[in-house]
Computed example of a mutant assay.
Amino acid sequence: MAAISLPPVPYDATALRPDWGELPAGLRAAVTARLGGPVAAARVATAGFTRGFAAVLETADGRRTFVKAASLAEQRHLVDWYAREAAVLDRLPAGLPVPRPRWTVAAAGWFALGLDAVDGRTPHLPWTPADLDATLTGYAEIAAALADPPPELVALGLPRLADLAREDILWWVEVAAGREPVPALPPGSRDRLPELVTLESRLPGYAERGGLAHGDLRLDNVLVDPTGRAWFCDWNWICRGPAWFDLVSLLITAHASGLDADALFAGHPATADAPPDALDVTLAALSGYLLTSAAAGPTSASPHIRTHQRWSGEQALSWLATRQGWETPQPGRLTTRQVGNRSAPRARE
């Protein structure tokens, strides 16, 4: 087995969120009315990278609802994400392992979304065979259902991954053009900037194909329930593009777990129509995106987001370097300088 690398902070301990009692009284009253009874227990989510409220709320009679909430004035981007997620989840095909929306409410200058509560946990790192098998099996079901998405879902005007790639994911080309400082790359990758630019440049063309992709498939957006079934959360980044893109972002942590991520990618049904170099192309793009995001400076998100972006970028580059036959990078020693002229990339929290 290859060497194992773990993130600096566990994925189930990255969030910094308000407690139920810290929300405005008017919002708590409105949410309580939707719940149908007073909140007897509130279990705040510890995974994720936003500062939005997120918790399983339980009433005295045992009914449980997962509630997300954000301030309209101070967290407008989160409000927009939650509203889009509600619309997406309401239109996803029936039977998929995704939480379903129950209600939305606006009160006291806040917006709240109520979802079915999934009785689950974040997968363990390093990945266990059971958790990984459940996640890959569940995603195969989702990818098959979204290969030909329902018209009502497409009608939401979902973004195209090809456009997102051109606008916000391809960053090595900015480094090569001198519009971004060159990251302090490890041995074996320091002279590979031309190859990184060439590889990432193919992503927009490849991303023109496919049905729909989750767009932000990471370990912390997966929950494994007591029966061993994997559930997929946080659908605000769904986009039109190939499902194999999701697999690359998910399997970065499989590579970090010392597993044969190449074989896991190649053997998944979502990669059946992937171009031969789709994995390398996506790893190149994601490594640049994550490493430049990590150097973007202060953020209103979790204080752990920059270190996680850096770690994830290092793992993506390590995986790519191994595949390309470059000298093996040393994850954990990669550093980046401050972002320069181009505006900081969107942080997918």
Rank of each mutant, 00 (worst) to 15 (best):
W326I: 00
T299E: 08
P329L: 13
P275K: 04
L286D: 03
P298C: 04
W326T: 02
A274K: 07
P298R: 10
L283Y: 12
W311T: 00
L286V: 02
L286M: 15
A295P: 10
S318C: 05
E327G: 13
Q330W: 08
T328H: 15
L317K: 03
R306W: 04
A285C: 08
I305T: 03
A316K: 02
S300P: 07
A294H: 04
S287F: 04
T282I: 12
L334E: 03
A321D: 13
D280Q: 14
Q309R: 06
A285Y: 05
Q330Y: 10
R323K: 13
S293T: 13
Q315N: 04
W311A: 11
Q330M: 05
T322N: 06
T307E: 11
E314T: 06
T328C: 09
Q324G: 14
P329A: 13
A301E: 10
Q324E: 12
E314N: 03
L290I: 02
G297D: 05
L334S: 09
T328W: 08
T322W: 15
L334C: 05
L279W: 08
T282Q: 10
L290V: 04
L283F: 07
E327V: 15
A285S: 12
S300R: 12
T292W: 06
L286Y: 08
P303W: 06
A296R: 11
T307Y: 06
G297M: 12
Q315M: 15
R333Q: 12
W326F: 11
D280F: 01
W319H: 12
G297I: 10
Q315T: 01
L283N: 03
D277W: 07
A285I: 06
A316H: 10
L334I: 09
A301P: 00
H308G: 01
P331A: 08
A301V: 00
G288T: 00
W311S: 02
R310T: 01
S312H: 08
G313E: 07
L317S: 04
L279G: 09
P276T: 15
P276L: 14
P331C: 11
W319F: 13
S318V: 03
R333C: 12
R306P: 03
T307N: 04
L290M: 10
S287K: 02
T292Y: 08
A284W: 00
H304D: 10
A295G: 15
G325K: 15
T307P: 00
Q324F: 02
Y289L: 14
A285E: 09
L320W: 07
S302M: 09
L290S: 00
S300W: 09
L286Q: 14
L317P: 05
A301I: 02
P331G: 12
R310S: 06
S287H: 02
W319P: 11
V281K: 05
W311Y: 15
P331H: 09
P329Y: 07
Y289P: 01
L286N: 02
R323E: 11
T322D: 15
Y289H: 11
I305R: 02
T322Y: 12
T282M: 05
Q330I: 06
G288M: 01
G297T: 09
P275E: 03
S287W: 06
S293A: 15
R310V: 00
Q309A: 05
R306C: 07
